[in-house]
Design a protein around this nucleic acid. Structure first.
Lengths: 221, 221
DNA sequence: TAAGAAAATTAATCAAGGATTAATTGTTTT
DNA sequence: AAAACAATTAATCCTTGATTAATTTTCTTA
């Protein structure tokens, strides 16, 4: 079971996040100030830290600088996170700006924890003649490579992860929001259309099926 | 019997909702301010809360933050619900904007209560040779897939959830109104007819039985 | 009163039009 | 180069009204 430390001086928000995480079966630790967090960290070693930068006393930046070897998701009210902060975030860490919704937060938590256990596991998704390399962002049809944009790749990756599942448009937007934060429902259709035509150009098949009034899924071959 | 708490300062609207819910056999509690609600919650633990955000004194947001472990349907006059609020809504909760109609409200109430008890997120309903996958919106007769429209699917799903139960036409409309909000009783017959012929085309059987003057149910096989 | 015929109600099917949603294409913006 | 946006075309679905069939109720009359 994963243990997550929430560092946030706002008790309300902290409570909500705690409950959210507990519902997902995470073990939660709390700290309400930077110094309390550091004290706690000398004793425990959580798997992930959620850090609000707006802290009284010891600043969030200071805390961040002191944390070693534990992935951190920085939660900030500032729209643009300081470059200084970005420097402090090593490869294992991430940041998210308020307001964010619970889904996005949980998605990022999952990503951090997964990446930690699965390390640099490079998974290659296969579907019929398609091969998708999550590590190198490459897609092949048999031996021919198909050049996809970031958004197209994210959509195809999602659909290929669960080929039988139907994803609603809003669900797709939620789940690819990490890779393409600004994509809207109106443009999603266009991305799907472009993705289809690229796949069709190489394979002659239409791999993506529309489910009327609901969303998209991989077409059974 | 489910107990539902209505938190709304407008007595008229509250009365309407209360009567609506009582007719559906729910047990109703009332609170007219945020503080009254919190007081009441220290004593009772309803199964669901309907919360109007426009409250005097203690704001709806404050109340929401204090509610723990009870699903909430937020009723808001604002068309766009604040991101702040969305953050506070965990997976068990929902929001609905005014003006809404009673059917929609009841449908959402049902969804919340059901999801709490039955956790019907990814179930596969079976009836004789039929298999219905609620997750992927697919129906199979033995191995052959039967393509249904959204409305037909919603009707079949409902009937298969309680195969022995007779559903009146208006009840069916109520219960599928989340999936197909605009379906009227006149067209429901046609949907049933089309659904029957699709099932018959694949199986040779007539799975839906009309109960004269009342409604429909699954036919015993 | 009981049987059968007519009327009324409810159900089922069909086909056409309108409405909704999806897909594509082209243009503008970043 | 990629994504967002706008506009058009295409596909599918839903509703409606007309028609036919099934069932119940009412009415008639022996």
């Amino acid at each position: 079971m994963y243990q997550i430390l929430i560092i946030d001086d706002d008790e309300h928000i902290g409570n909500m996040i705690e409950e959210l995480l507990r519902k997902e079966n995470y073990d939660v630790l709390r700290a309400f100030s930077g110094s309390e967090a550091l004290l706690l960290l000398s004793d425990k070693q959580p798997d992930l830290i959620l850090l609000d930068l707006m802290l009284p006393g010891l600043s969030g930046e200071d805390v961040l600088a002191k944390i070693q070897g534990i992935p951190v998701i920085v939660v900030s009210a500032k729209v643009d996170v300081d470059d200084k902060i970005k420097l402090l975030l090593d490869g294992d860490s991430d940041y998210i700006t308020k307001p964010y919704d619970t889904k996005e937060l949980l998605a990022r938590v999952l990503v951090q924890l997964r990446e930690r256990t699965a390390a640099t596991s490079r998974s290659i998704l296969k579907y019929d003649d398609l091969r998708l390399d999550t590590q190198n962002f490459e897609v092949f049809a048999d031996e021919a490579q198909i050049k996809l944009t970031k958004t197209e790749f994210a959509i195809l990756k999602l659909l290929m992860q669960n080929p039988k599942q139907v994803y609603t448009k809003s669900k797709i937007l939620d789940l690819i929001s990490l890779d393409t934060p600004d994509c809207m429902e109106s443009s999603l259709k266009v991305h799907v259309s472009n993705l289809r035509s690229k796949l069709r150009g190489e394979t002659g098949k239409d791999y993506i099926e529309a489910v009327w009034g609901i969303g998209f899924k991989m077409r059974e071959q």
